[in-house]
């Protein structure tokens, strides 16, 4: 009897959850479907069954050189993330393992830099980039993204490092490990999962950053965000191709995101929700 009720409850909840999930996912799904249609099909009214052509993907590559912005996105996202990690790991390390009275203040201050609205510094940054010849360069944008995401990277690493119990470090000291051995044999292996999650989340954030990447590039260093934004001006109907480009722009990061959903919560709430 009780078991019956539970099963019925589960079926109801399942149906409701799937309906909600499919509605939310629908725009993405429909983009994927449209990308497999021909252009006339794409504007011929609602249909979930495409003719299954891959022509659009080929066209996007041959006509608009999709590969170039894609590579820019990869270089920018990965490059800025690694750069941020190199700068942030020692800091987060020091704050987690030799905290002082001011550690908390420094962390809060770092967080506060993240609150600065991008538009507020658009003018000086734009002028500086122009004067230093950094506009539309990969290097300029990489530095930019590194700085933008540095506070989040420090914070995420800090929350992970802080969870490494102090007693383990003391045990290592009792066992005769010097500082270097402590780092190599004990701390690094324990810190790797946290560093990996930080890396993943930060790549996602950098990949999707859509203010500086659009404003500070034109063609050479333009990543996918700018590439897609350039489609906004209506130059005739080319939805199937647009869908193909969109699908390619979001697919890699979508898959990466699925793997990192657990860490996402922690990272984006600065450890406030686990």
């Amino acid at each position: 009897m009780a078991r019956n009720v539970t099963t019925r409850h589960k079926v109801t909840a399942t149906v409701a959850a799937w309906v909600v999930a499919l509605i939310i996912f629908f725009p993405i799904l429909y983009t994927l479907i449209t990308s497999l249609k021909t252009e006339p099909e794409a504007i011929a009214g609602f249909s979930l069954i495409p003719s299954g052509t891959f022509e659009n993907y080929v066209t996007v590559q041959t006509q608009r050189d999709y590969f170039k912005p894609f590579m820019n996105s990869v270089v920018l996202a990965v490059g800025s993330t690694i750069l941020a990690l190199i700068i942030a790991i020692p800091s987060a390390w020091a704050m987690a393992f030799s905290p002082t009275k001011r550690t908390k203040d420094i962390l809060m201050w770092m967080l506060s830099t993240k609150m600065m609205p991008a538009v507020a510094v658009l003018v000086p940054i734009y002028l500086m980039f122009r004067d230093f010849g950094l506009l539309d360069t990969r290097i300029g944008l990489t530095v930019m993204l590194t700085l933008i995401n540095l506070p989040i990277v420090v914070w995420m690493l800090y929350t992970y490092f802080r969870e490494i119990p102090g007693e383990i470090l003391e045990a290592a000291r009792m066992d005769g490990a010097g500082l270097w051995q402590e780092i190599v044999y004990v701390l690094t292996p324990m810190a790797v999962p946290g560093i990996a999650s930080t890396l993943l989340l930060n790549i996602i954030l950098a990949w999707n950053e859509a203010f500086w990447t659009i404003r500070l590039t034109t063609t050479n260093a333009a990543p996918l965000t700018a590439f897609i934004a350039s489609f906004s001006s209506p130059q005739g109907l080319f939805w199937a191709k647009l869908s193909a480009a969109s699908t390619m722009a979001i697919a890699p990061i979508l898959i990466l995101g699925w793997f990192s959903q657990k860490q996402l919560v922690r990272g984006l709430t600065f450890g406030a929700v686990k």
């Binding site: 119990p165 383990i168 009792m174």
Partner: peptide, 12 residues
């Protein structure tokens, strides 16, 4: 040699 309250074993 010390035995800690949480044992402080190296988890990895």
């Amino acid at each position: 040699a010390m035995v800690f309250q949480s044992y402080a074993l190296y988890p990895h």
